[in-house]
Amino acid sequence: MHILVEVQHLTKIYGNFRVVDDVSFFVRTGEIVGLLGPSGAGKTTTLHMMLGLISPSAGSVRIFGKRFEENRAEILEKVSFTAPYVQFPIRLTVFENLMVFARLYNIREPSSKILELLRMFEIEDLKGKPVSRLSSGENTRVGLCKALLNDPKLLLMDEPTAYLDPQLSIQVKKILLNMQQSCGMTILYTSHNMAEVEEMCSRIIFLNRGRVLATGTPIEVTQLILKENRSEPALREVFLHVARRQSNEAA
C-alpha cells in the first residue's frame, strides 16, 4: 500500500511549551489509524496542523505526496475533518448547512448527496430543523454527514463518537468501516474509547507529551509500552499506564 500521509518532524511550540515535539509518522492508503494519548498529548494540535489551521513551528506534512503548505486547496478538496467541538451556524437548518459545504466542495447534485447521507445516518427527518434545536448526538451525526459530503480520500476525526450513545456509536463505526472497505477511504482519528480503537484501527500512533511513544498494531503498542508479552491488545491498560506514569512524574 502506498503512503498517503507523511508527517515529518512536526513540532509546535507555544512560548517555552512544546505541544508537539518532533512527531513523525505515516499513514498508508486505506488504513484506519488511531492517534492516541492522554489529554494534552498533542493529538488535536497534530490534526489541526495537518489541516493548516495551525502553522507548525517546524516540520512538514505531505498528503497525497504533496507538501501541504504549497498545495492546501488541492489537498483539502479530498480531505475532510470532523469533531464534536466544531459546530455549525445554529440558525441555519441542517440542510442549509450541508448545502453550504456541498457548494464549498463543488458537489454535483448536492441535494441528492445530502439526502443520501442524512438517510445513511438516519437523520433525514432533521433536514429542515435549525441546528440550534439538535441534540449533541444529532449534531455529531450532521458533522459526519458534512465530513463525507466530498467522498474524502482521507478523513480526519477528532473524537468522533465522544457525544454518541453506545448504539449510535456502533452505527457510526459500521458506516465508517463500510466506507473504508467500499471506497478505500483512509481514516486517521483520535479517541479516548480504547475498545473502539482496538476494534477499528489497524495501527496506532501513541503520543505522550507531544512525542510519539509507540507506533504499531494495537498488540504491538500494548507490548511496547507495557513491556510485557501479551496475546491480546490492552489499549485501555496502556492508556492508564501512561497517564499514571505522567501524573507520578508531575507529582
Binding site: L53, L76, V79, V86, P89
Partner: peptide, 18 residues
C-alpha cells in the same frame, strides 16, 4: 463574528476555502 459565535471557523477553513 457570526462564524466565531457559531464556532464554525474550523469547519470552514478545514475545507479548500481560502
Amino acid at each position: 463574528l457570526e462564524e466565531l459565535w457559531s464556532r464554525n471557523l474550523v469547519n470552514l477553513f478545514s475545507t479548500p476555502l481560502s
